[in-house]
Amino acid sequence: MSAIDERRSQFKKYKEDVKDRGKPFYPYAMFHDTVMSLVVVGVIVGLASVWFYTSGENPDTCGGKDSCLLGPRYSEPADPGTTNFVPRPDWYFYFLFYLLRIFKWPDSVILGTVGIPTILLIIAFALPFLDIRSERRLSRRPVAVVAAILVVISMGELTYKGAVAKEALASEVVAAVPQWAQREGFANDPKAVAGANVFAEGGCTSCHTYLGTGGGNLGAPDLSAEGSKGKGVQGLESYVADPSKFGNTVMPKFGAFASIPAKDAQGKDLGISQLRVLAIFLDASKGPK
């Protein structure tokens, strides 16, 4: 008997077995389904109630507590002008989010954004055609069991790491600026120092790293030695203003910085924009001495 005939006769036997000694869907299976559905609705109502009663009416507040059990009701209203914000997806995208810490722009980031998700999806769709044996007992499907365990562990690990990923707080980053100036040797250039402050306060370290500080999210590269790549102040300025012009479609545009005047540590106007000092800072970053 060929494989397909065997499977057909097996399914015929299934139909006969169900007919002979199965139980009617109503009321037996339906009873279980109803109980389970009530549990699901109960859990959803429970989560909604806990979320609401442990959060506050104002954005990002938790009714007097430090952190909400299930998150705030909403954060501040969307503001395209601010950048000091860590882009964070909903939890079921954390595994993709964290995958992008492993791959770096520009060489391999596409593996994290497109490559691995596409491969996973193709495997998921093709599964019934990759595993064509009719065997269903787990003890006789070692490959399937090992694959399932590996998938659960790796997805769980990436989701967990995405959830606990440390974010660079602007206050901590700003405190590191004098040390950056020292180690990179631009302490005597007030424009570069002002640019370092814009870099620290502007939220660049949400994704980028600089001398060990920062998030390293979304494949963003380390910028400690960005100035040694020969892009020049002008080049860096236009890159940051609109990275998509240079083929970088991941990084948001920061052209808004061009209209904000830069100030030095004493609050004196430097006469140039924040975008310009940012570019001067990046150009002065030739790597730690």
Binding site: Y74, P77, A78, D79, F85, R88, D90
Partner: peptide
């Protein structure tokens, strides 16, 4: 919701 979280994500 059009808040910061949703916008930047």
């Amino acid at each position: 919701p059009w808040d910061q979280t949703s916008y930047w994500a």
